[in-house]
Nucleic acid binder design. Structure first.
Lengths: 338, 338
DNA sequence: CTGAAAGCGCTTACAG
DNA sequence: CTGAAAGCGCTTACAG
């Protein structure tokens, strides 16, 4: 037995299919309608177990309580400690709270325009990933398809929910400066992304503020921590991305050099280390809240409450500082010894 | 400028809209068609930058390429070590491979018929969970809606992909018997489910085969391990469910009794302990493969390749034995000492 | 108050 | 070979 259509309900209730549509749609246009008729239609729908076809609904109007989730990696990460997993949890909870179902767009090999187009069966779509091919997304944006990026974007008119890395990163450097550090290195991965640019900007802002010249080192190789210490460096700040490459590199180098943290060297991470070690000084990215906020924004975009270029469509959530124990006052003895 | 549609291409190429559809669809039905016409249409489409509307395509072609995933818990578990997480990974990968998108039905309310009915927006649906309210699912089954349970079901005509707990559990007991154990206890949780029944059956089958009377103990309280050992029990087999209640209870009891495993007592788990400790004797449930197989089966059901009551619609996947080190020969000294 | 009609952008028979 | 038509299941004007 095929699933029931509105026409089936209409037949059963003795009304027209259009009337069924009006009733089931909650009579948004405020048509006058006999209560009896309304109840009769509702009862028939219940009896038949009616469920609207999302595709037809979407074609005829533009609303099916379906939100897309497009990830540029697997949605269910094999590595469950994956950095965007908590975001997904927030997304799911908020979607559930707002009565929206989620469509996972996965299996995308080339993330080209044709691939991204599939998202249009949803009312709007969330995009995940450090790198999102802007040109592939452009057609969607141009057509006014509601979408929200997780993570800040440079492109104007593109809504996003990100983390305020500038402020959080600056705070980390200010703390080091406050402890007396003057020779600080910032190690970041060569990979370019808005979130990386923001962290670097925060570091440089705080350095300039203190009249310091923090050396920014880009590398995907081993970190020359030992040499830095010999040169008088007392603190190292490390970028944290979803691969943790830079942080892991520094941690290894520190171990191999036999350095004691924070005695010989203060170490801070711009984010949280992969094992979420609270002993490491850094900050927490509000991933869960980002997920929730992104869904709320997307729904507001879909319903037209918010427009893509309004300020509300560009949100940066504050990060929570993690004091840790990997940062201390600079070891003057060390410094003089070099 | 609005997006071009097939009718725009048709106008430009001087053909009908239907012809455009045929050409762009790759002429699946193998209609005869002038190559010149084909090229003209293609050129026009290219010139206008045509992009098919996925919603209209799906409506017209009568299938959504949408597979439902209905979980009776959160889809993105807060506890990422959750036992069905690997299944989800398999589901996602196979869905991706088959070009199917996934709709997550969440919202965790009462799982009644009305709630489950929402799944019908998908072409078919996967159901997760130890307990699935059979009566709520019945209407879907009756309507011929394609669905697949994860885990064996008793209800005839309901497709499932589960694990072969009978065989795997029997193998565990046979191994103990082979090592010389004669006094064996089986501890299981009181909770009833097909997967629990299968494990118990495997245990009892192997026991009968060996002419032994394995005592089956149902409890959700502390396990009286110490007393068992005093009574001459040399091996304990424990059920493993998604809560791990029984296993954790036994482990605690063994520790408190100061027993040494496997010296004083052999310990085997019918599954894998929560921390996936390979030192514990048991077996691995092929969760990842179950996820993949379930999606394949669901797609076959949707396309009609397989019918719900055929043997192929009821699959039990083999579990992989985990030898472990928690099982050894019975300690005769202990036995005599009591 | 309710029905008939048009149309969303496609696919798929079915006539020529 | 190609066009005209019907129809996928809905929503939204527009007549009564």
């Amino acid at each position: 037995m095929p699933r029931p259509r509105q026409s089936d309900i209409a037949k059963l209730a003795g009304v027209s299919q259009a009337t069924v549509s009006v009733v089931l749609g909650g009579n948004r246009s405020g048509l006058r309608m006999a209560e009896r008729t309304r109840l009769r239609v509702l009862a028939a729908a219940e009896q038949l177990g009616y469920v609207p076809d999302p595709v037809a609904t979407r074609l005829a109007s533009r609303h099916n309580s379906l939100l897309g989730v497009y990830t540029f990696k697997r949605t269910f990460p094999t590595n469950v400690a994956d950095s965007y997993y908590p975001i997904l949890v927030g997304v799911e909870e908020e979607a559930a709270a707002l009565g929206q179902d989620l469509v996972l767009f996965t299996g995308a090999r080339d993330h080209d325009a044709a691939e991204l187009r599939r998202t249009r069966i949803a009312d709007g779509c969330l995009f995940f990933g450090r790198h999102v091919p802007a040109d592939a997304v452009a057609p969607l944006v141009a057509d006014g398809f509601p979408l929200v990026y997780i993570g800040r974007r440079d492109e104007p008119g593109i809504p996003y929910v990100g983390a305020d890395y500038v402020t959080a990163s600056a705070a980390v450097v200010r703390r080091l400066v406050g402890l007396g550090h003057r020779e600080i290195r910032y190690l970041r991965e060569p990979d370019e992304a808005p979130s990386s640019a923001d962290r670097e900007r925060g570091v440089l802002d705080a350095a300039r503020e203190a009249g310091l010249d923090v050396g920014v080192v880009r590398t995907d190789g081993p970190a020359p921590v030992r040499r830095w210490v010999e040169q008088g460096v007392t603190a190292v700040v490390v970028e944290e991305t979803d691969t943790s490459a830079a942080y892991l590199s520094v941690r290894r180098a520190v171990e191999q050099a036999g350095l004691s943290v924070p005695h010989d060297l203060s170490l801070a991470v711009l984010g949280q280390p992969p094992d979420e070690d609270p002993a490491v000084t850094g900050f927490q990215v509000p991933r869960y809240e980002m997920g929730r906020a992104a869904v709320r924004l997307l729904v507001d975009l879909v319903t037209g409450v918010v427009t893509p270029d309004s300020p509300q469509a560009h949100r940066l959530l504050p990060c929570t500082p993690v004091p840790g124990r990997s940062v201390g006052a600079p070891n003057t003895a060390n410094r003089q010894g070099t």
